[in-house]
Simulated scan of single mutants.
Amino acid sequence: MRYGFYLYGIFPLPGPQKLELEGLDKQPVKTHIFDDFVFLYSEAKQQRYLASRRNLLGHETVLEEAMHAGYRTVLPLKFGTIAESWQAVEKELLVPHRQQLHELLKQLTGNREVGIKIFWETNEELQRLLDLQPELKAKRDNLQGKVLSMEETIAIGQELERSLEAQKQGIIDRFHHELNALAIDRVENDPLTEAMIYNAAYLIPWDRETEFGDRVERLDRAFEGRLRIRYNNFTAPFNFARLNSD
């Protein structure tokens, strides 16, 4: 049974040519031209797709393989986007958002998304903080073994938290100083875990990725193993494909 079209992304004309890709449910990936947009799609065999790791990776892989094939300018669509018909695509997407889609594709032309996630060890950073601020360490040590009031407990906890936050921001500022000048745009997302202190996507020119990656490696060396950095240098630009709601 077919439930419509599963949509992966939008390309500018002329769009991908003769791609042999396998999409979700092992369906062949096809293209459909609508006005001056080219949609990458496959037949939807489910009414709703579970956001499982397998399905999410399948969605992303289709887009990344198209980019690897040389079709770099792509506006990725949200996972699970199913259209009952091309008339529905026109009514629900193109009519209200045509101008925004053009602007997003223009912004993405010649540019790519890279992602950075930074992790630290909270306990180690707290000890580093106390070593660097002996007055704060002495204040904490003087309270050990004493019966503290709720106000005293909260006060020392807040002071430690503020100092640790400042330490964290100092690291982030260092990355901003090194990387922001190479970026056309930047999106900062919420950390995914307690150990993650920075989660950002950068939009950079395709031909500056080597320089960007070198700077990330230089930062990694500068912190001498203090941080764990995850750098993704090839992904569809999901963070820069967001439509503004009216």
Rank of each mutant, 00 (worst) to 15 (best):
L126M: 14
E125T: 00
T122E: 14
L148T: 00
Q158W: 03
E121F: 05
E103W: 07
E113H: 11
K146C: 04
K146F: 07
E103C: 05
I154C: 06
S163N: 13
L129M: 03
E152W: 07
V95H: 10
L164K: 07
D141C: 05
P134K: 00
S149T: 06
R98E: 09
K117T: 02
A166N: 09
I118F: 11
E152Y: 04
A138C: 04
N111I: 01
L130F: 10
E135N: 14
H97T: 00
E152A: 14
E124A: 14
T109Q: 14
Q167N: 10
S149R: 04
Q100L: 03
V114I: 06
L160Q: 11
Q158C: 06
A155E: 12
S149F: 04
V89T: 10
Q107K: 13
N123L: 11
E161W: 05
T153V: 05
F119T: 02
A88K: 10
S163M: 07
A155G: 03
L143C: 08
V89M: 10
G145I: 01
E103R: 04
A88H: 09
H102T: 01
S163R: 11
N111V: 03
E165R: 08
S149M: 01
Q100A: 13
Q127W: 11
A155P: 00
T153E: 15
W120E: 04
L105R: 10
E152S: 10
S149P: 01
I154P: 04
G145N: 02
E165N: 10
L130S: 05
W120C: 02
S149W: 02
G157P: 01
R162F: 14
D131I: 00
K137T: 04
A155Q: 09
A88I: 06
T122Q: 14
A88W: 06
R98W: 03
G110N: 02
K106N: 14
I156P: 05
H102F: 06
V114T: 06
E103K: 07
K91R: 13
A88R: 08
N142K: 12
E125W: 15
L104Y: 11
V114Y: 11
E152N: 02
L129P: 03
H97L: 00
S85A: 11
